[in-house]
Design a protein around this nucleic acid. Structure first.
Lengths: 340, 340
DNA sequence: CTGAAAGCGCTTACAG
DNA sequence: CTGAAAGCGCTTACAG
């Protein structure tokens, strides 16, 4: 951990000025082949690598981008994977932070990230409104997964209305009329949209949504609470005078809790009860039964968010994309498809 | 995104020198109460926040720490969670990077992180030897999960020998004598140690390990390959003249593949075949059967790694810890425990 | 094609 | 208790 060589050291060895070294480092190509060669040799000889703090200070921007998500559940982790892969192309690295579904914490993280001079932030907001002026961040922001009411930002999301519509329709086609819908927190756009798709599908079958069959998984603090939320909701709904014959559960953790409850009630899927979950995972294939799932293109969403950020920075263009959700049909709700 | 206020702006408003502002910012407490008050008011009024690039340049160290793991599987994600939580206390943020099990890529990432002046790196190495001089990184390194042969670095790991010993013993107690062991890549310390624990347990029961029952999950590139590795290994072993009556599968992805193969072969767990997996997850509770698992304290490992890094930086002390692994007994291999 | 010099926004001895 | 000044290692007009 001896002192690192600087531009000056390289310049001295290569016998040029520091400006020239900087130019070849940045491929400004204002140097002759011979000079470039000499500089590169000096760099290699000294094991030089640029001090990014100095560069960031001068340019007002680092090679870091910030990622602020509610938590590191598998969905957001897959988004992180996509982001990391795409960032290679732009020579960015990602600072990952979790807001724990708290918008106070989220805003604090954005401040922290701004102070690091990140060149952009990818944000899955904790709530559907931003409580602070849009330019409280010195870095451009791209939204991922969840929309904001009061800000016009680029966003890469999934088409939750359509995805939810397809899933509900699938359950309908397989003879279910009373479908329990288990949603996450009411304050986020994905929840609102998944509820919408469900209601639309019901309507298309001339069924009026029964509010008793629509429930939120409760408090949103941590893995265990969400699993419990899914669990309790199923228990409660099955105690209704006229319980659902199927469930559509709109996220991964809620789903685990829901399945747990169904198993405890000794109900068999799909014989006694139909089931469609959300967010695919290799596990779903080996579970018994293999679950029919609404699958999100999380990796792709991550990649696109990075691209949208780059676009925003270079052209100012506000890219928005709503990616299709895929219904992966396995064996938890019968197999009569929408198109049959 | 207007120009951000600097120390100078704050100093002017508070009517003090920039040194004083810097002092109150850093709680150097060389200022009077009155001055501190004035400065803080000015900071709030201007919405000032420190430019961390400038600070990093001057101090030769940022508030970032780097995390380099092979991939973002649930185990490493849980480690990331622990790291993020502990980093709060030190006012650090984490730059997350994935080496994809390539040590070339890993070393490149370490260089990149060093250039960012990270104040430390937490590394789960791709291979068990470091191909470069130990001080090729300008930042202190602490290892997590996997050991290195040729470097004396702080390390937070799990006691893989013991964990594997307990699992194998459990299978033995439940009457299994031919136990298939499915390992990850041979070139990493965790694999070596898990194999060791298995052999030790067998020896304690006067059974000589049969090399045909010890297999590596094959190439280690990505989720799908590992699942396939687990799958193929089971298929191959079950075709042996004298196949195993139980499997011990030493990671999460390998396990998914293995279970898939067992189900395809229409073998029932635990009736036809005993099974112990690795890395717990809520899913394991609702699967059929619920799996007996060797569970790693990943979150805690993350926290301890950050603490070890802090210790290394402040006192030079090389902390090492080998955390106990827990055998969570469910229903995939009978329930006669080691202590019965 | 190359170099001298200013300046990005901080921290930190040092002087008073 | 407070301030003036140097300097961290870069990038970037600008001059030649």
């Amino acid at each position: 951990m001896k002192k690192k060589p600087t531009l000056y050291d390289v310049a001295k060895v290569a016998n040029v000025s520091i400006a020239t070294v900087s130019n070849v480092l940045n491929h400004k190509s204002e140097a002759s082949e011979k000079t470039i060669q000499r500089v590169n040799e000096a760099i290699k000889k000294l094991g030089y690598s640029r001090n990014e703090s100095a560069r960031s200070l001068k340019k007002g921007e680092s090679k870091l981008i910030g990622l602020v998500v509610p938590d590191n559940n598998p969905f957001f982790t897959e988004i992180l994977n996509g982001i990391q892969e795409e960032c290679e192309l732009y020579d960015w690295q990602v600072v990952a932070a979790a807001s724990e579904e708290s918008s106070a914490r989220q805003n604090q993280l954005i401040k922290l990230l701004s102070a690091q001079q990140v060149s952009g932030i990818i944000l899955a907001p904790a709530t559907d409104t931003l409580e602070i002026p849009i330019d409280f961040s010195s870095a451009p922001i791209v939204l991922i997964d969840r929309e904001l009411h009061n800000a016009e930002l680029p966003i890469i999301k999934a088409d939750n209305v359509e995805g939810s519509y397809k899933a509900t329709k699938m359950l309908l086609r397989n003879g279910h009329k009373r479908i329990g819908l288990i949603l996450a927190s009411p304050g986020i756009s994905t929840t609102v949209q998944r509820k919408q798709g469900y209601i639309d599908a019901l309507k298309s079958a001339q069924i009026k949504a029964d509010e008793k069959l629509i429930r939120y998984g409760g408090d949103y603090t941590g893995t265990k609470a969400q699993i419990d939320g899914g669990y309790q909701t199923v228990i409660n709904m099955m105690n209704l005078p006229s319980p659902p014959t199927a469930f559509f559960v709109t996220n991964h953790l809620l789903m685990i809790g829901a399945v747990k409850a169904i198993k405890e009630l000794r109900l068999s899927i799909p014989r006694d009860i139909g089931f469609i979950g959300f967010d695919d995972h290799p596990w779903q294939e080996i579970s018994d039964p293999p679950f029919t799932i609404v699958s999100q293109p999380a990796f792709e969403m991550g990649r696109l968010a990075v691209r949208a950020l780059n676009k925003l920075k270079s052209t100012g263009e506000i890219v928005t994309a709503s990616l299709p959700l895929q219904l992966i049909i396995r064996k938890s709700c019968g197999t009569k498809n929408v198109n049959d």
